[in-house]
Design a protein around this nucleic acid. Sequence first.
DNA 1: CTAATTTGTAAAGCGCCCTGACGAAATAGG
DNA 2: CCTATTTCGTCAGGGCGCTTTACAAATTAG
Lengths: 415, 415
Amino acid sequence: MAAPLPNTQQAMRRRNLSLVLHAVAAHGPLSRASVAARVGLTRAAVSTLVDELIRDGLLVELGPSRPGTVGRPGSALQLNERGPAGIGAEIGVDHLAVCAVDLGGRVRARTEVASANRDRTVGPALARLAELVRQVAAEAVREGLRPAGLAVAVPGLVARDSSLVVRAPNLGWEGVDVGPALRAALPGLPLTVDNEANLGALAELWRGGHDPAPRDFVHVSAEIGIGAAVVLDGRLLRGTHGFAGELGHVPVRPEGPACACGGRGCLEQYAGEEAVLRASGLSPEQAAAQHPGPGGRIALLAERAADGDRRVRRALDGAGEALGIALAGAVNLLDPRTVVLGGALTPLAPWLLPALERELALRVADPARSGQGAVTVSRLGSDGPLLGAAHSVVQAVLDDPAGLREAAAVTGSGA
Amino acid sequence: MAAPLPNTQQAMRRRNLSLVLHAVAAHGPLSRASVAARVGLTRAAVSTLVDELIRDGLLVELGPSRPGTVGRPGSALQLNERGPAGIGAEIGVDHLAVCAVDLGGRVRARTEVASANRDRTVGPALARLAELVRQVAAEAVREGLRPAGLAVAVPGLVARDSSLVVRAPNLGWEGVDVGPALRAALPGLPLTVDNEANLGALAELWRGGHDPAPRDFVHVSAEIGIGAAVVLDGRLLRGTHGFAGELGHVPVRPEGPACACGGRGCLEQYAGEEAVLRASGLSPEQAAAQHPGPGGRIALLAERAADGDRRVRRALDGAGEALGIALAGAVNLLDPRTVVLGGALTPLAPWLLPALERELALRVADPARSGQGAVTVSRLGSDGPLLGAAHSVVQAVLDDPAGLREAAAVTGSGA
DNA sequence: CTAATTTGTAAAGCGCCCTGACGAAATAGG
DNA sequence: CCTATTTCGTCAGGGCGCTTTACAAATTAG
């Protein structure tokens, strides 16, 4: 049990800096006075906090805002669009992607390349990724941004508070620590590594476009396996070892087909990409031939389903049913506000949802949740994890703006 | 989104008071200097905090501690055993219980009476409960304690941050707000109402006797239905509506027998008390005849199982298997450190565990959790919810000692 | 044009913690 | 036995951060 932060005046100041920054981030351009009203401090206190944030390049003053109401108009404050940037990266089965996001959440640079990472040696893949990160970071610098950190999304289990990829079946990685190679290739750039579904959930939380943003939800994501992330009270649930969210191995039919995990009848056996393809009578090779490139198999399924292919429709209906059963358990256990379908599931949602919602409605005991609006589909689609990664860096800056200055002092200010 | 507390110096002071109090509570008698080292403040700061806590009657000074080491011996601080007390109450199917707990966590007064609350009108039951609370509170006062609040454990769904019992099937209650009657009968005593499994989990968290106390676990409890509570990062997960933990309606076999909740094959259909009795070839009447009083049905099952009754053994094995399947889903989803069996399940644990652990080992994907120590049995047994209720009041005092003084100022100091 | 309202800043004050120093109370060693 | 050392608790001084109070600036209402 680490000391729960030494409640000192400095810590208070840091929290208040973050509070002001978050207020501006969440509620558009704001005057000092309205920030003060929002966070519960006085105008004088907010003034000094804002001064500090402006000096550190996190806020900018837009000049006097247009009048409209009685009284002296305030001077609008906005997040600096030429300040720190979060770099997000994604290692997919068949692609690599990197993007840079500014404090305001806008994507300011982006690259994506096809790259068959499955069963490939790790070294070259990471070298390639570092190369892309350098490109994107350079472009961000040209736009006046300072890269403040890198977060990498991986489709697999990542040990908590580490860069160790314990298992990523889709990549064929097992016990790979991606930290050393990336840190060596990208000196001075703080690194975090996280599960793809987790970062997708964070993207949903911050930029899902829901209003108000749901602070308690289960985010289901899928590439080949099925991952989920649980957000409760606005915080991501990571679990003791960082492995929370393994929805793919929740038992759906305990006597069902054997699963690679050692169990029987796991969700993955009914709603995993491979299982759905098999039930549809399609082979992976066929899919690769007809829809090459990232997301080809999913695209094929969506196309066939849209064309009215009965076998595919039936397969997706079965997958939706299985998802509904597994999620019914999760909903009964966690009482979230909604279930969000994201990642690769987005394009298939129209054919998954009916059965999914039917099962959920049938099996959820909670009387208050009767039906309405229980399941939503992400608007971010397959971009979720990448955006979430970049945003997680931005969020870290918003959560502790003073930490950034300290880091800069250590590394010699970067630029 | 409520203002996230106005980070002022007063708030800091309050948090530091709580920090000091918690340090003393967790680590026995402590000198000012060791408290300071623990919480990360200076000795001088801790001195003033301690002074204030002593003035408020929360801490007492035991006088100079015995030497033993070099240097001036410190003056040991201890929680005041004649300070605030938490009153806990439990409304069971066939009993009412009330207890008082001091700051140190010791039970200082207790009553329990048989009372058939099932399908009885609510008014008389609550009147009786209030009467018992008055008795216990009076006894606590005789011991020098000041009752600081009352928490009531109910076997059913309680709406979040309210005293509304939405549904308690075992009691036959539906949409009953127990707040008005109890508040009217017990003026001046702050009231909270919570689910029995939730409070049992809190008891496990605070007084489970585990070392170190697990901060992430699933606590399974059962009276007639099957409840569970999820503790993550030392905090109880309540869910959007306060209904988290409905393990009883997690699907185990989706095509299984119909359940009262509208679903099919819910855990309750395999591991609920009624289902187990039926599978054992025993009728509730028979059980009531042979083992009257609280917990009679469970006691009968335990007795028969101990005697080697094959049918009962098989029934419990099946229940354990179903529990294992449902919990495998929960463990995959949440990655807790352990699963704790509590409440009425405790006496049956020996016959439930083998199948439960087998299923769990089989179906949990997490490679780090391989087998060892995944399931533990509560040492608190059926006392958990009652103790947890009283402790939740004590915990509230430890979390904000200054709040207590304010409350006293409003109500005119009570005594 | 004046009164009212609101914004942002400055000065004074207060609360809270830290620093540094000191007496008190014990041990260690001669 | 006496002194040096160590640790504890407290006190005075100081720094820091927020609040209070006051005031000039900028706008609307009448």
